[in-house]
Design a protein around this nucleic acid. Structure first.
Lengths: 137, 137
DNA sequence: TATTGACCTAGAGTAGGCTCTAGGATGTTC
DNA sequence: GAACATCCTAGAGCCTACTCTAGGTCAATA
C-alpha cells in the first residue's frame, strides 16, 4: 500500500512548482494521475520516482518532447523496453558531448585567467595569448 | 596590419548568422565595431577572437547578460582585470557544477539501462531498482 | 547602366519552458 | 459556520535567445 499525495506535497517532493506539475501533466509527462472524491489529483510514490528521473534528464538538457516520448513508451509496458533504451542511449551520448564541451571551456577559462594574471603582474598586456581564443578582452 | 571583414564573412568565421551578429551588437556583445565608407560594419581579428571566446561561454550556459558584462569590462582596460577574473571564476564554478550533474545523470541512465536489461532478460520487471530513482518506467 | 548580391535599419515573430491570473470549489480548523 | 489554505480549469503572459520581414542602399560585375 503506497503513500498518496496531493499536488502541493508532490510538487515539493520533486522540487517543481504546482503550476509546473499541472503543466507537465498537460504535456504528457506524468502518466495515469488519479483523482480523489473532490476531483483533486492524487500522486503515488511511482509518480515521485518517475518525476525525479525526468528531472535529472531535464536538468541535463532533455527536451519536454523527449521526456514525453519516454513517458509514452513506459506507459506501454515491456514491449517498449528497447525503444526506451534507445532514447536513453541517445541522451547519454548528448551528455557525454556536453561534458567534453564544458571541460574544454574550463580550459579556456583557465587560460584566460592565466592571461589576465600575467597582464596584471607585468602591468602590460601580454603580446601573445596564453591559451586558445585570446582577443584583447 | 590586421585583416578586415564584412558581416557575412565574419558571421561565417564565428559560426553565427548575420542576423545574430547584428543582434549581438545591439546586446552589447561586440565592442567598437567600425564602419566603412558605405556604412557597412567592419570587423577585425580581435572581434573574431572575442566572439569565439564568448561562443564557448555561451555554449556552456553563460547568459547574454553575463557576456555583455564581460564585454563591457574588457572595453574599460586593465582596471577591470579583477572584475573579469571574478566573472570567469563564477562561470567556471557553474561549469564544474554542471559537469557533476551531467556525470550523475550518466550514472542514472546506466542504472536505468541495466534495469531494463534485467527486465528484458527475466521477462519480468525487477522488483527492486538497480540504481537510484527507479519508478515503473 | 542594369542587374545581382551583400549590406543597412526598425521592428515583428517564434520556440521552448515555464509562470501567473481569474474566477470558482473544496476541505480543514477554530 | 466562518476563515483560510489548497485545490480546480482555461487561458493569457513572460523570458531568453534568437530569427525573420519589409523596405531600402551600396558596390562590384556584365
Amino acid at each position: 500500500m503506497s503513500i498518496r499525495y496531493h499536488i502541493g506535497r508532490f510538487a515539493k517532493l520533486v522540487d517543481r512548482s504546482v503550476h509546473t506539475i499541472r503543466w507537465y501533466e498537460a504535456q504528457g509527462l506524468i502518466p495515469a494521475v488519479g483523482r480523489d472524491a473532490g476531483g483533486r489529483r492524487v500522486y503515488e510514490d511511482e509518480h515521485v520516482e518517475h518525476l525525479l528521473f525526468l528531472e535529472r534528464m531535464r536538468r541535463t538538457g532533455m527536451s519536454v518532447a523527449e521526456m514525453r516520448r519516454l513517458t509514452d513508451l513506459s506507459m506501454q509496458g515491456w514491449r517498449t523496453l528497447e525503444a526506451r533504451k534507445s532514447v536513453l542511449q541517445d541522451h547519454r551520448a548528448e551528455i557525454e558531448a556536453k561534458i567534453a564541451d564544458l571541460s574544454a571551456a574550463v580550459e579556456d577559462i583557465d587560460a584566460k585567467i592565466a592571461f589576465y594574471d600575467e597582464w596584471d603582474r607585468n602591468k602590460r598586456r601580454p603580446r601573445k595569448a596564453t591559451g586558445p581564443a585570446q582577443a584583447r578582452t
